[in-house]
């Protein structure tokens, strides 16, 4: 039901805010709601009902032409390339594949760290030679997984490379915009479910650390391993499903927003470029020099929180400047 409201909102988004249009939108919503409820009553599934209602909506230009209303054009009309349907959908597919490979890569990195901690603990209580071999095995395993992950990052990054020119701005033909809005609306429930699942996993994951340390302090590292793997699954969900959503958002975002966002993205990108390698250096340094593999993994969650904090502070400062 919410999907229909969002769809209608999007259809009216580019139109001027006039009382007659608000009234018309309300009337359309009543009609669509009623149709939706009847379809559900006839035994159609949620998706089918929404699909039918949206496909029978028609063409908003038909209405605006009758009312003599024209969509609000942005003041400076810049010459930007018009996106074809094929390009748009290849972009969505590329983002999906990028999300999949990057998600798996991140998951493998986390598994690598988990493997290291796991093996290290497993062989800890044996004699020195075995313990050393265990740590060695863990390290080799971790670096192998990280190497595979880096390969995936590069591979997926290259696939997205050809869409670099989208950053320069683009135009969407009307029919394509409508079809993308429809796809986005149908995708919304999946996205929401994946977000909820991811957040739940994130919230639940530390439970393993507490539980294992409650049972026996020696088991805590295994709790950490479980925590890392569960959190990695959550991160995978965020990256994969977030990227599909991101593709739609990117294609449908207003040109005006793009310029402002570009600056933001640049800042966040620059910050990430410093923060994450730094975290990795600290991780490896404390590991190899001080042998503190047991606690130093915490540098990554901390870096994650810091990166979130920086970007929020940046947003707040930016908004202050505007007002």
């Amino acid at each position: 039901m919410e999907t229909i409201v969002v769809y209608l909102d999007n259809m009216f988004a580019s139109l001027p805010k006039k009382p007659e249009l608000e009234h018309l939108k309300q009337e359309l919503l009543f009609g669509m709601e009623e149709k939706y409820h009847e379809l559900k009553r006839d035994g159609k599934s949620e998706n089918e009902a929404i699909g039918i209602v949206i496909s029978e909506f028609g063409n908003i230009e038909e209405l605006t032409a009758e009312l003599g209303i024209h969509p609000v054009e942005s003041e400076q009309v810049v010459k930007v390339p018009v996106l074809t349907e094929e390009e748009a959908y290849t972009y969505v597919a590329a983002r999906r594949s990028w999300g999949l490979w990057t998600g798996i890569g991140v998951f493998l990195c986390a598994c690598g760290v988990a493997l290291l901690i796991g093996l290290d603990t497993l062989f800890e209580n044996k004699n020195t030679i075995v313990a050393d071999k265990g740590s060695m095995l863990g390290l080799v395993g971790m670096f192998m997984l990280v190497a595979v992950a880096v390969g995936m990052f590069i591979y997926s990054g290259m696939k997205l490379e050809r869409f670099k020119n989208l950053e320069q701005g683009f135009q969407l033909p009307y029919a394509l915009k409508a079809s993308l809005l429809r796809s986005q609306a149908l995708y919304a429930p999946t996205y929401r479910l994946s977000l909820i699942t991811g957040v739940c996993l994130c919230v639940l994951s530390p439970v393993f650390i507490f539980a294992t340390s409650y049972v026996n302090d020696d088991f805590t590292p295994y709790g950490v391993v479980a925590f890392l793997v569960i959190a990695a699954v959550a991160v995978f969900l965020f990256i994969y499903y977030g990227n599909i959503q991101g593709a739609y958002t990117k294609l449908l975002e207003e040109p005006k927003v793009t310029a402002q966002k570009k600056e933001e993205d640049r800042f966040i990108g620059a910050m990430g470029a410093v923060l994450w390698p730094l975290a990795t250096v600290i991780f490896l340094f404390t590991g190899f020099v001080y042998q503190r593999w047991d606690v130093n993994w915490a540098v990554f969650p901390i870096a994650g929180i810091l990166s979130g904090m920086f970007s929020n502070v940046y947003h707040i400062l930016k908004r202050k400047n505007v007002s």
Partner: peptide
């Protein structure tokens, strides 16, 4: 709905067509 039933679903009037006709 009545148009749809009367035409045995051979013609389904789109929402926007309906409301532009009203206007």
């Amino acid at each position: 709905k009545n148009i749809r039933q009367l035409t045995q679903e051979k013609y389904i009037m789109k929402e926007t067509t309906l409301y532009s006709a009203f206007t």
